[in-house]
């Protein structure tokens, strides 16, 4: 067997994957960069060439900036809440003496398998005017009229948390369970309080998982349009909703392309900065 054939083999094996990625990802992304400089004319046809109109519209219209900031805000709040709320069960599973750790973890991962759209709309059953919360409140006589709990920012954040929490828990758990228990014991022997030992030993050592979970929550949260569409009101539109609107409703594809690039650049910057600081392999770690 020649060494040339041997050295070609990995590329041969990779060619279907790289072909898929080039044709379905790289080329389309390159194309929408070019396409964002085209124009959609009143007749609905594309005008090729180099027009800055879409970009001028994005950079000068405060409407887009406001929604971009709002998107970052919602994703940030969601990420912080997921970090705080997700850390606790991850810590519990990592430290419990119960035998069925894997089962406990599996249970929390189960919603991850359940359809995102079902999980999102399930909150209508909880928070809607005919939902569980209002039903209980009215039965108890606390309120006479059902409260409007849906279609606002908290309900969007709640829906996003429900969607993203498993990502956080899994990543934090992977980090926590890799910590040598002797380190905490050592800190305690040296006089640290339990909370002190947690702050000085456990928390810093779990940072990689916390960071990876946060990255996933932020990026996935900031890129969603389904949750705001189902659980949000008219003022809760996020940036991806603008893209959906431009492409599907207004059929202004060049503008939709430009807005997509904005979202890609903003979230891509977050991922790149994170990758420089932490490396991206922590994320792959939670898969095995």
């Amino acid at each position: 067997m020649s060494t040339l054939a041997e050295s070609r083999r990995p590329w041969l094996l990779l060619s279907p994957a790289l072909g898929t990625l080039s044709f379905l990802l790289v080329a389309p992304l390159g194309f929408i960069v070019v396409y964002s400089f085209w124009l959609r004319t009143a007749t609905g046809a594309d005008m090729g060439g180099f027009h800055l109109d879409n970009w001028v519209e994005f950079f000068t219209d405060a409407f887009y900036h406001d929604i971009l900031f709002y998107t970052v805000r919602v994703a940030l709040i969601t990420t912080i809440l997921c970090a705080v709320v997700g850390y606790i069960p991850a810590y519990f599973i990592a430290n419990t003496r119960m035998k069925n750790k894997a089962l406990l973890l599996l249970l929390l991962m189960l919603p991850f398998w359940i359809s995102y759209i079902i999980r999102t709309l399930s909150w209508i059953n909880i928070l809607g005017t005919g939902g569980a919360v209002n039903y209980v409140l009215m039965q108890l006589g606390i309120v006479n009229e059902p409260l409007q709990l849906l279609y606002n920012e908290p309900s969007v954040i709640l829906g996003l948390m429900h969607y993203l929490l498993p990502f956080m828990i899994l990543n934090v758990y992977v980090s926590l369970s890799g910590i040598d228990g002797n380190l905490v014991a050592a800190a305690r022997t040296l006089g640290a309080t339990p909370f002190g030992a947690f702050l000085k030993v456990t928390l810093p050592l779990s940072m990689p998982g916390l960071a990876a979970g946060s990255l996933l929550c932020f990026v996935l949260g900031a890129g969603t349009y389904i949750t705001p569409l189902i659980l949000g009101g008219p003022t809760n539109a996020m940036f991806a909703n603008l893209i959906f609107e431009a492409i599907i409703i207004q059929l202004n594809w060049p503008l939709g392309a430009a807005l997509s690039i904005v979202l890609l650049v903003v979230l891509g910057t977050v991922v790149t900065v994170y990758g420089r600081l932490m490396g991206l392999n922590q994320i792959s770690k939670s898969f095995g």
Partner: peptide, 17 residues
């Protein structure tokens, strides 16, 4: 990379391309 690119963007790019 397909995990890291927002899914909306994947959707739009492939559709338009």
């Amino acid at each position: 990379t397909p995990i890291l690119v927002p899914e909306v963007v994947l959707g739009v790019a492939l559709l338009l391309f």
